[in-house]
């Protein structure tokens, strides 16, 4: 226990860095995934903008990138990170790569959740003269809001998991903290402290997600 006390400020910083990395990745990856997911959903046959070629391209794109293990993706995408955010290492690089990887994963979650929307309600909206764009904004997304919130909660937890390897490219956060001060120094108590912070965080996120989803479902 004594070895942990002097490290507490570092643990606080690491916690803040994890929150920062995860939050920004959720924003960028979440928006990217939403757009990509809407693309997958709307271009399906019989959907609002059926388009076989576009649908095929999007599907191939998602199927190629989604299964790559994040630790490999992080290394492989480093040149791209350097190109886009200017640096290949540190928190900016990890946020960029995490957002990119998350977007592919989220797109499928979005697509699947949007597919639960009853075709009948879309037909009802079309029958009163609503435009397709309006239908996406005022019918499709609101009707799928409950499952979407649960999907994004799942993603947030997954991002916390993925962010732990940030140390590989010189990023910070709880993963880096646990490896550097716990594992390398043979101090399991320090590692466990990081684990406990992550557990608390994940529990809080899941509880919040469930609560919001329940409000959306009104159940």
């Amino acid at each position: 226990m004594d070895e942990l006390i002097p490290l507490l400020p570092k643990l606080a910083t690491a916690t803040y860095e994890t929150l920062y990395i995860v939050a920004l990745s959720l924003v960028f990856g979440g928006v990217g995934g939403l757009v990509l997911g809407l693309g997958l959903y709307t271009t399906r046959p019989g959907s609002l903008y059926p388009n076989r070629p576009v649908s095929a391209v999007l599907n191939i794109l998602v199927n190629v990138f989604r299964p790559i293990p994040f630790i490999i993706f992080l290394a492989a995408a480093q040149p791209l990170a350097r190109l886009v955010v200017g640096v290949g290492i540190g928190n900016s690089a990890i946020i960029f790569t995490l957002s990119l990887a998350a977007a592919f994963g989220i797109s499928r979650i979005v697509e699947q959740n949007l597919m639960t929307v009853q075709p009948g309600v879309i037909e009802a909206a079309r029958s009163v003269g609503a435009s397709r764009l309006r239908i996406i904004g005022t019918v499709v997304l609101p009707e799928a809001l409950g499952p979407l919130i649960l999907g994004y909660t799942f993603v947030l937890v997954a991002l916390t998991d993925m962010s732990a390897v940030a140390g590989l490219v010189g990023g910070g956060g709880l993963g880096t903290f646990a490896i550097q001060y716990g594992y390398r120094q043979f101090e399991p108590v320090v590692t466990w402290a990081a684990v406990i912070v992550i557990i608390v965080f994940v529990q809080a996120v899941q509880a919040l997600g469930n609560w919001l989803a329940r409000k959306a479902f009104r159940r």
Partner: peptide, 20 residues
């Protein structure tokens, strides 16, 4: 779309917006 504003439609399964 403008024409549809002047034509109402009702359905077997009602098709109400559950989010509203």
């Amino acid at each position: 779309r403008r024409l549809r504003i002047g034509i109402g439609m009702i359905f077997q399964q009602f098709n109400l917006f559950t989010s509203k």
